[in-house]
């Protein structure tokens, strides 16, 4: 990967709260090649969404601030660019789809106008042309009777259809990178399947790079090429999705896998991870996962683990655990 489309290096994002400063994203690095899909996985407070917000320049200010690292998109650092230029990139090069489509759409504008506005503002299209393009896009993302529905307001669409409208808006200017933050969390399982199938199609069609953010290991499994698991703002395991899922080398990933009841698995007692996701204000010393970890030893308290190659696939698969090899051995042994 000599020239990735997006290269995030040592990204650190902090939030100032009344009780003190928290590090929501802690020295996170990853690369994303053209046409590749990366799944960022984690629970509440893992920093997965903040990572995406940082890439899009959407970290809420003034509480939040990128305090370190670089976000290199297509060879230039987004963090050192003037805000006006970064804004120009949003939409044309980078686009984002959010979890809650209703709050991301303007309730008093017809959806056609909202999609068309992008063409009018950014491409100087005429009103008629923008409308035609809006219908075309709505059709492409699978909204039935697009020519009629283009004049409807957001509240007249169901949750799934609204998410399609959001995807249509994100795709309007043919971005090279699409970030989808929990795009199906608010939707029913049948609609979720529709949206994931649509995203997979679009990705193949446009050779678009994609970052899928989710808490659900299963939803992204069919679409993502690589997976990156985050815990307490740090990357704990990363690699090709199948490698990460099959030859898991981090106890957190392993714990998550064991926590999920599987549709085709045996109906036996679940093996949950004890405890709760950490309070970022009071992170334990060393490895943040240590208090919930069955493998924890003294070194975990004294030395924060860094990402290291996993022996089964040292070129791509890395995990941040002092006991990665033990975990791996246990996983392989079943």
């Amino acid at each position: 990967m000599d020239h990735p489309l997006l290269s995030v290096q040592d990204l650190t994002v902090q939030f100032r709260t009344r009780a003190g400063t928290i590090t929501a994203v802690d020295r996170v690095s990853f690369d994303l090649a053209e046409g590749e899909t990366l799944a960022i996985l984690g629970e509440t407070g893992s920093g997965k969404s903040v990572t995406a917000q940082a890439v899009m320049g959407l970290v809420p200010r003034p509480a939040g601030q990128v305090t370190g690292g670089r976000i290199i998109y297509d060879g230039t650092d987004l963090l050192t660019r003037p805000p006006s230029e970064a804004r120009r990139l949003n939409g044309t090069e980078l686009a984002m789809v959010f979890q809650d489509p209703l709050s991301s759409l303007n309730p008093v504008l017809r959806v056609g106008a909202q999609i068309g506005e992008l063409f009018r503002r950014r491409r100087g299209a005429s009103r008629a042309e923008a409308r035609r393009k809006a219908i075309e896009l709505m059709d492409r993302v699978g909204i039935p009777a697009a020519a009629r529905r283009v004049d409807d307001y957001p509240h007249q669409f169901s949750g799934g259809m609204r998410q399609r409208v959001m995807i249509a808006m994100a795709l309007a200017l043919q971005p090279r990178l699409l970030i989808a933050d929990e795009p199906t969390t608010a939707l029913d399982v049948t609609v979720q399947a529709q949206i994931m199938a649509l995203l997979a199609d679009l990705k193949a069609e446009h050779r678009m790079a994609m970052i899928l953010i989710s808490h659900d290991l299963g939803v992204v499994a069919g679409v993502a090429d690589r997976a990156m698991l985050m815990y307490a703002g740090r990357v704990v395991e990363t690699g090709e999705l199948r490698e990460v899922y099959e030859t898991t080398a981090h106890p957190y990933t392993r714990g998550l896998m064991a926590s999920i009841p599987e549709l085709d698995g045996p109906r036996e007692r679940l093996q949950p991870i004890p405890g709760a996701p950490p309070d970022l204000m009071r992170l334990p010393s060393g490895c943040p996962f240590r208090p919930r970890c069955a493998y924890a030893t003294d070194i975990c308290a004294s030395q924060p683990p860094t990402l290291a190659a996993v022996p089964t696939r040292p070129d791509s698969h890395r995990a941040a655990c002092h006991h990665a090899e033990e975990v791996l051995a246990d996983v392989v042994a079943g």
């Binding site: 994002v13 939030f15 709260t17 009344r18 009780a19 928290i22 929501a24 509440t44 407070g45 893992s46 920093g47 997965k48 969404s49 903040v50 809420p60 509480a63 939040g64 949950p272 004890p274 405890g275 709760a276 996701p277 950490p278 309070d279 970022l280 204000m281 009071r282 208090p291 919930r292």
Partner: peptide, 29 residues
Amino acid sequence: PPTDQALVAPPAGDPAGPVDTPPPDADPL
């Protein structure tokens, strides 16, 4: 067991503040 351990204690002097994990994923503001 099993329990969500670490029941976080409220910071002294601010009993009204949210002492749960501040979830930056949700809304830090």
